[in-house]
Design a protein around this nucleic acid. Structure first.
Lengths: 218, 218
DNA sequence: AAATATTTTTAGGTTAATCTAAATGTATTA
DNA sequence: TAATACATTTAGATTAACCTAAAAATATTT
């Protein structure tokens, strides 16, 4: 059984491990969790003793198979709760993250099973991220980040990378949402910004940074 | 802001204070929370410093006005979550307590407001206990414990005192539920047990201990 | 490859919440 | 009311999760 803090570390390390092919570094973990490297060293020792991480001094950590299973259960809970908050309690997609960070640590198999059923076994959360099933299995939609696309290309928004509130509010403001049709009108060479058309309406401009955080179907 | 542990102490002390007219003792708190008197002394010092309890060494504690408001918010959350689990997730009334003990500490005003709305502002939880509103106000139904009733008296079950799983399962088994019609056929002088009739069906016997834990309308 | 910079670990300390055992206060009873 | 019993508090440890500062390992530059 993992504690609240241990679950948070494991989940974060799992996410970081998905973004790199090498081991996850102590500093990367500390940055993600807004904590200090010394605290991370303590915790990764504990988690490797528990068998969810493999760790060699000064070489970073990797998530073990049992660690992955445990991490995916936390992620499953997080994404089910986010779906509940949006679908049933009418939260906006920018309001769910903080609350789901708390709810994901509630411990009850029956609760999660029933919640999943109540939500009709959703496959994706409000940000387009896949929801692992009770065995940790999930399927991602094939997708490309908008900054990788070419002039004239179009597609449907299937996910956003960053779920921070300010970013999501900005997307709402310019009329972007999951399922929106998007077409690249022009790509500005100078700064990588894009002129895009949403749902065949009048075009807008988005920065390269924003375009890196939006995924569309290929 | 109170911690998880502090909220648990405060809620428990509030409940104990409702059952007595004098101050709540250190040992009573320790028993309720399955902890030791020494731990309780430490915690009540902290809580009185925070202004939610008033405390005099060796004289027990009383819940202050601000303490009562805080306690009622925790109780409100507990009872709303229990209602959610039963009404929406089809939990049995004997399965909700443990999970609600965790959920009651989730911190989000918006969540509770929306949950209340989603449940259509319920006034009573699955055990018949009143749910305080956002200001801590609630109304109890007038009620008598079954062991206080006389031969021939009848009424509707409006609440149960104890929400422990074994007790509630037993009630299910003998056909008792909130809203059931109950009639006292005979009161056995010797041990205080009762012969009762449920919903005009064939009669059963219940012990005095059980009858003390069932409340009916007068 | 030596010097320098960066990352990671270790050593030692802090805080919250718990504990046991001993000391002290309060209550009961002979 | 003195003796005994019981309740409560204090003293001092323990554990988990964090911290700072210093030491050690690794990486990068010149």
């Amino acid at each position: 059984m993992l504690s609240f803090a241990e679950e948070n570390y494991l989940k974060t390390i799992y996410h970081l491990s998905q973004e790199t092919d090498s081991a996850v570094t102590t500093n990367a973990i500390a940055d993600s969790l807004n904590t200090k490297a010394a605290s991370v060293t303590d915790m990764i020792k504990k988690l490797s003793k528990k068998g969810v991480l493999s760790y060699q001094k000064y070489k970073g950590v990797q998530v073990s198979k049992t660690g992955e299973i445990a991490a995916l259960q936390v992620i499953r809970k997080h994404r089910l709760w986010e779906t509940f908050l949006v679908d049933k309690l009418k939260f906006n997609w920018d309001q769910v993250h903080e609350v789901a960070e708390q709810l994901e640590h509630i411990n009850s198999d029956l609760l999660i099973q029933r919640l999943d059923e109540f939500l009709a076994y959703p496959k994706y959360d409000p940000h387009g991220d896949p929801i692992p099933d009770e065995n940790g299995l999930f399927k991602s939609k094939p997708r490309v980040a908008l900054d990788q696309c070419l002039d004239g290309q179009s597609g449907i928004i299937v996910a956003v990378k960053d779920s921070n509130s300010a970013f999501l509010k900005y997307l709402d403001k310019i009329g972007l949402y999951l399922g929106a049709k998007i077409k690249i009108i022009d790509k500005v060479e100078f700064d990588g910004s894009l002129e895009i058309q949403i749902d065949n309406k009048k075009s807008t401009f988005i920065s390269k940074e924003v375009s890196e955080n939006i995924w569309i179907t290929e």
